[in-house]
Design a protein around this nucleic acid. Sequence first.
RNA 1: GGACCGCUAGCUCAAUGGUAGAGCAUCCGACUCUUAAUCGGACGGUUGAAGGUUCGAGUCCUUCGCGGUCCA
Length: 491
Amino acid sequence: MSTRLEHLRSAREQKLTALRQAGIDPFGAPYPDRTPAADLHTAHANTSGEALDDAPVGVRVAGRIISLRPQGKAGFAHIQDGTGRIQLYLRLPELDPASALTWENLDLGDHVGAEGHLMRTRTGELTVRTTHLTMLAKALRPLPDKHAGLQDREERYRSRHLDLLTNSESRAVFAARSRIIAAIRRTLDGEGFLEVDTPILVPLAGGAAARPFLTHHNALDRDLSLRIATELHLKRLVVGGIERVYEIGRIFRNEGLSTRHNPEFTTLEAYQAYAGYREIMDLTERLIQAAALATNGTLQAGELDFSGPWRRITMAEAVRQQTGIDFTTLTTDEEARAAVADAGLSAGAATGATWGALLAHLFETHCEAALIQPTFVIGHPVETSPLARRDPHDPRLTERFELYVLGRELANAFSELNDPIDQRARFEAQLAERAAGNSEAHPLDEDFLAALEVGLPPTGGLGIGIDRLVMALTGAPAIRDVILFPVLRES
RNA sequence: GGACCGCUAGCUCAAUGGUAGAGCAUCCGACUCUUAAUCGGACGGUUGAAGGUUCGAGUCCUUCGCGGUCCA
């Protein structure tokens, strides 16, 4: 810590000591019966100064000092509470000794309570003419620049309290995040879904293609992982007869950091018995439209238009449009590899690549980024969809969709694979991939297979990345802007 | 993992290789309707870290750290 910061701090500590010596607690008692600033502005929007003088309105307000303009024997200040700002005006000779001492030892950032009556200044600003000023909490560190706010992005992530304090856009994003999650919960609850909590600590992390965080339980002397998805547990609940079930929860994937990736993030997963991916598509529209309305009051968000029905396109058609390769006319892996090579495109997984792997690869590299407006992509190859039901009309494909917005995957859903024999075979194919070096291949989960053998009804399942949804709806450029405390390197 | 950009006072930002500055904040003083209050004065720096080139480095070079952007 530099000498300068110490100097700033010691000035505040001296004031704190002065208050203590006068018997004033700088970290004061609760301050009940206050009126939020926004309520005062609303209630008195049309009350004239004369009316306030003729029939005084007594008020108590509380908040943080964000500007301070002493003026001889009088003074002005603005306080900010959770709802907004209001100005204080006081005249020193009218204050009791404790209030006067509090004023003299006030700093930007202090929490105060003010009691008085409402007035309007010459310029018409609604103001609390203060007669009693109470120190509620002294701030020992200075606030960031009062006009520019905290600009340094790193500091905004590392000191989120300062970011929230000084950047109203940041507060707005997190308020929107809360409304989005509430809207999703409200919609699902309204449709008869039961919200549950499933384990975060699991013996085997499955339900997605990702590497888990590993940990250890000492008492059981057992290695455990942090979940990478909620899928397998939720499907076990559907086996157990909970026909509509969902979880909004944190999941953890041991991967890198980027503007779209944080190692812990929030997903919604919802499962509906006797439904298929078509019904889930409609549910997805309802959920995201409710979230959009909760965010902006409309189905528009910047350049995005969430009014439905949304565009639907098969993965093969998207690839055909972008690359000219028509996978529906290719029947074997060899043909697919030859077509990709003829087109002069990078084959990705090169030599051993299958028809499905090539289709998925070309979609990822050539199509995703162009899907700006909400678009359902359907017809995913079975290789990349180990938990999805096979398409009865084309066994190379699954009954699955992904929702793309702004070139990013926002939701992923399918008719769940409920055939335990096929599921075991898919797991074994994944084990072969793992043996071939794919560390993200799905593990074989015997507990889950045992549940499937008891009988999972036909079920539609949905996963939505809540953080990316918040990004899309608020226009936040990075996932770190929608997660309060993102993972960062050690400073 | 790669390329590029950034890191200077508590905060926001300046500074052709030639004395490290401004605004806000802080401190002292003046001021009873100010609101980016005003006026007078003062304090405040290991320029992210370590090396190097140079008579002289915030600036040029190397390595490293942290962050950002774009790729993988």
